[in-house]
Design a protein around this nucleic acid. Structure first.
Lengths: 374, 374
DNA sequence: CTGAAAGCGCTTACAG
DNA sequence: CTGAAAGCGCTTACAG
């Protein structure tokens, strides 16, 4: 392995000069000529910097610990990691990834390993949105919670705005002319269920349709979703269905088909998740709200790096593709046309100072909801 | 941060002794009393070893580079990483994860970053089985290709045995009494297509049914799969369909339903992938071959660590859950009841010396194929 | 049975 | 404008 010492010897300078050159701290310190000679020698010898030595000396590793409860439980949850990696790369960081399988003991052990590798900060990523206590070991280190919320509100958290999901999805059905909309929800008590229901209710209120508790039907996938969907169509005669998630949609489709109802005209259906193997496989293709996994990963890294290196370090770094609503408004162009959510999440631009950000998600229009009425 | 120096001072011994204690090299070198005193002091001060310093000194990081083309493109491909992580943890390793988006330049850059962090070896993971050239930068380092094959046959590779998938799936249909089996394949020319077709053919030959090219129907999902499935049922009148993958199954189900055929009795259907959102959502649930993503990740790490530390280092470490066929045979018990594939893959036990291993995959019996005839 | 010393590859005050 | 030296936290050959 070629070290700075080798370059120094070969180029006839001191190690110090070599180091200065590689750190661009040549100011009025190292002559142009020297810089060129050092660089040429380095190239000639095939020098590659040793991050480990640098880390030891600087007490800064430019490595982030990425902790997940269990990756790959849901398709596309890996997108969080992809987003995190893209952001990390652009900021000169890299990810050390561990998963804990929701085992507290294992988690403690893995965090200790990360610490021993001198990571500069942590992403604590959950595989679905919920409130969790932040592990005590992460309390005093730069940490951002992704697709979840720190129960104690200490650590900045990034997650989908579930209420807005419910509101936007329902409003989309209303805009298509629906007036009798069923909320087809989940029987298990999870955070998203309550908040999406609340958003549903809000949209109905805003449209002066009003909330009717009889139109809330909950079901459990693979247990009674089919049966419930049938009853729901028979007894409630809805013109639109807001499914808590895409997984519930096939049951609705089937029930509709069995009753001669055509999804997309007789019955509008909207889901949440944009699961590739559901939303695109169903006929007609399912209109659905996409969760911003990629963005949460990307912004999570932005946020934690801004905690480590300061807000200036992440200026101008933004996800090039993602599932967020652009909130820049009419006439906004280029870099300024990004969601205020994004800015706040990144912690780079002046936000309202909130630590945690619920991100507004995008509706992916396919075929199961008629066009917006004029 | 507490260092060995602090412990040494506090305990009144030398740093050397402390190091020896933590490395268990106390032989007849450090007295029992000293060991206890050092350990107690370490605990008292909250000492944690510094892997970075250790890495610099030892030139061994116990970090593996995990390189993926694009994670999370397919659901459950993240399982590769989960398996890799489980194995890594059990062997005292941890993963530095990068993804390349199939961009050669980015890949080169990311590998350089990994090298600068002094990783001991690499996993080169693909998101579906194909043959690729191993990046030149990885040629001389311990590297294992996962869910793919090194074109040049240099690096050990782990991948599903596609031919066996085709043979086992087809044999399963035959065992259920099918005699007129369609291969419902892919129009895009990928490795798995050809090999699964070959396995299909082999199973037919072995059952003395014989191969009929007219029974091979290829289609492209989301384009003509529905239409082809219909034609196929109308014109070929099959009693079984082997789908190249699960994604093709819904089209077959729909076509069957439209013709009053009941899947699971009138028509047997088997897929490949065990995609959670297809195989379990379809009614009847889809019998399918599961790809061993978790195992490939796990065994990939085993293999690369055995290249780094020698075969002894990975002895006895095996995945506790996975999708491989247990080939230990009758009467085999405990640790010996593991697939020879696994052993060979791990490189821990005497294999035939083959670098690369095609893993035999498990059929997950659900409802779309009738029981095996007596 | 134990310690003093060198060195892994880097950065940075300090001296010139 | 440049170099010699110390030190980040560890391990290990060497000397006692």
């Amino acid at each position: 392995m070629v070290s700075m010492k080798d370059i120094a010897r070969q180029a006839g300078v001191s190690v110090c000069t070599v180091s200065l050159v590689f750190n661009g701290k040549t100011g009025n310190r190292v002559s142009e000529r020297m810089v060129r000679r050092v660089l040429a020698t380095a190239k000639e010898l095939g020098y590659e910097p040793n991050s480990v030595a640098r880390t030891l000396r600087m007490r800064r590793s430019h490595v982030l610990g990425f902790i997940t409860d269990e990756i790959a439980t849901t398709p596309y949850a890996g997108a969080i990691m992809l987003g995190a990696q893209d952001a990390a790369r652009r900021l000169g960081y890299i990810l050390l990834v561990v998963s804990t399988g929701n085992d507290r003991e294992l988690e403690r052990e893995q965090i200790a390993t990360l610490r021993s590798h001198q990571v500069d900060g942590y992403l604590y990523a959950l595989m679905y949105h919920r409130r969790v206590p932040l592990p005590a070991e992460l309390r005093d280190a730069p940490t951002v919670v992704v697709d979840g919320e720190d129960e104690d509100g200490q650590a900045p958290s990034l997650y989908p705005d579930e209420r807005l999901i419910g509101r936007d999805a329902t409003a989309r059905l209303i805009a298509a002319g629906c007036r009798r909309i069923v909320y087809f929800g989940s029987e298990t008590h999870i955070l998203a269920q309550d908040e999406r229901l609340e958003g549903y209710r809000q949209a109905l209120d805003e449209a002066d349709i009003g909330f009717d508790p009889a139109l809330v039907v909950n079901a459990t996938e693979n247990v009674n979703a089919g049966e419930r969907a049938g009853h729901m169509l028979d007894e409630l005669k809805p013109d639109g269905v807001f499914c808590f998630n895409d997984v519930r949609a096939p049951a609705v489709y089937e029930a509709a088909q069995a009753r001669g109802l055509r999804v997309g005209s007789d019955l509008a259906v909207i889901g949440v998740d944009n699961q590739p193997f559901i939303a695109s496989v169903l006929r007609p293709a399912l209109t659905t709200v996409e969760l911003p996994h990629y963005d949460m990963g990307f912004l999570g890294v932005l946020r934690v790096v801004s905690m480590i290196d300061g807000p200036d370090a992440v200026q101008g770094v933004l996800p090039d593709h993602g599932a967020l609503v652009e909130a820049g408004g009419e006439g906004a162009v280029g870099a300024s046309a990004v969601s205020s959510d994004v800015s706040a999440a990144a912690g780079a631009l002046g936000s309202d100072g909130a630590l945690s950000v619920g991100l507004r998600c995008r509706i992916v229009d396919k075929e199961s909801v008629p066009p917006v009425l004029p």
